[in-house]
């Protein structure tokens, strides 16, 4: 099953390699990993998307918790959470009809065009992984120049929070 694990990690050089190293050394799957500092500059927040049987997920969370740099961890999948990913897509946009079609499609997906040239659009889109997939699918394949995806972030709904 797919799990979304959030971590608070000491903002130290090497913390990221300890975590990614754990996944490769123990042969765990990693679908995506995002990381950035929080409002507290000594802490980073990390979201890891991983898959595995219950047993493997249990080992993953235990092994992550064991790392000295990991301050706190939560498997979001156990609760009610929101998951979002961000994507940039650069597409060919030459000719009026094509530009109009991209506009229409982007409106449907609530995507924003954030850069425009005579021949290209750059589009920003946020949503679940499925939604991003759907947008890519809807866009004609040979129109796509490049795709940049952030990997998912997660946060718990309601008052619950992953804080110190």
């Amino acid at each position: 099953m797919r799990h979304i694990v959030s971590l608070l990690v000491e903002n130290e050089a090497g913390a990221l390699s300890r975590i990614s190293g754990l996944f490769s050394a123990r042969g765990y799957n990693i679908e995506s990993l995002t990381v950035a500092t929080t409002e507290d500059s000594t802490l980073s927040r990390m979201t890891i998307i991983t898959t595995g049987s219950d047993r493997i997920i249990e080992q993953i969370t235990k092994q992550l918790n064991k790392l000295v740099d990991v301050v706190k961890l939560q498997d979001m999948t156990e609760g009610n959470f929101i998951e979002r990913e961000m994507m940039f897509v650069k597409v060919k946009a030459d000719g009026e009809s094509k530009r109009a079609e991209i506009h229409r499609l982007s409106d449907i997906f609530r995507a924003r065009i954030i850069d425009v040239t005579d021949t290209t659009f750059c589009i920003e889109l946020t949503g679940s992984g499925d939604k991003l997939d759907a947008y890519i699918k809807a866009m004609h394949e040979n129109n796509i120049v490049e795709v940049v995806r952030s990997g998912s972030m997660g946060i718990l709904r309601g008052e619950k929070a992953l804080t110190l």
């Binding site: 050089a13 090497g14 390699s17 300890r18 190293g21 050394a25 000295v68």
Partner: peptide, 14 residues
Amino acid sequence: AVGVTRPCVKHNFL
């Protein structure tokens, strides 16, 4: 050294 020993230490520091 921190990279080389990472998989076989409880923890390491630079």
